[in-house]
Write a protein that binds this DNA or RNA. Sequence first.
DNA 1: TCGCGAGGTTTGTATAGCAAAGTAGTTGGC
DNA 2: GCCAACTACTTTGCTATACAAACCTCGCGA
Lengths: 117, 117
Amino acid sequence: MVGESKDPTTQETSPTEDLDDTVHQRVRLGILTIANESRKVEFRFLQETMGLTAGNLSQHIRVLEEAGFVNVQKGTDGRRPRTWVSITRVGKVALRQEIAVLKALVSRVEGSSAPSN
Amino acid sequence: MVGESKDPTTQETSPTEDLDDTVHQRVRLGILTIANESRKVEFRFLQETMGLTAGNLSQHIRVLEEAGFVNVQKGTDGRRPRTWVSITRVGKVALRQEIAVLKALVSRVEGSSAPSN
DNA sequence: TCGCGAGGTTTGTATAGCAAAGTAGTTGGC
DNA sequence: GCCAACTACTTTGCTATACAAACCTCGCGA
């Protein structure tokens, strides 16, 4: 039982302390993942793909922008206004870090088919 | 460019929509991960391992309990009061689901060393 | 028996997340 | 060519969340 006996196989470390809440948040993790797949992504595309309201997406993009994880470009497609989001170098590093922690977490959970379970 | 051309290799699906915010939240994901590793875990152990204040941990445990993901047992160790947390069957299913989505996410991100990157 | 500490819980508050309402420019109908 | 409806977001307002400080209860030592 954890905390009672010191089982050497028990990993007594926090599985999630290295996660950055700015990146880990569900919607933003999705945005970064998609943004990481191409040079730039349209606002509309993100909204439809992720099933978000424009207002909600707008706010999450602002958070990512203020963290330096994405750049926002405004322009037009024909005469219609468009907003594009692109991931920055810093954003890519942050995403990689998140992924690294998640990989470790997945391994840890999959490795714990504890006998008493 | 996503949203402009229909590149068949582009995964036009949300990477994170199947994540449950109750489970995905950083601290709670940690609690469930640790709880999944043994039959029951002491409150104090969770608190120290994850570096949380007692108040914060208490709240997160309540959320997990109300979701049916953990059971809370109160008792004594000698004469000192103790609180133990144990993951439920439903909690295990929820954790597995989270891990499944995270695995897919990791693969997706690692698979996108997009040429234009 | 009084105070101190252990072990949590409750309360207060700042922030986050979300959608409704608002804004600015565009297009289509007549 | 003027106005209504639409596109493409942004801002605002509300609710819920996350956190720590303050609080509570019980046992133990002096």
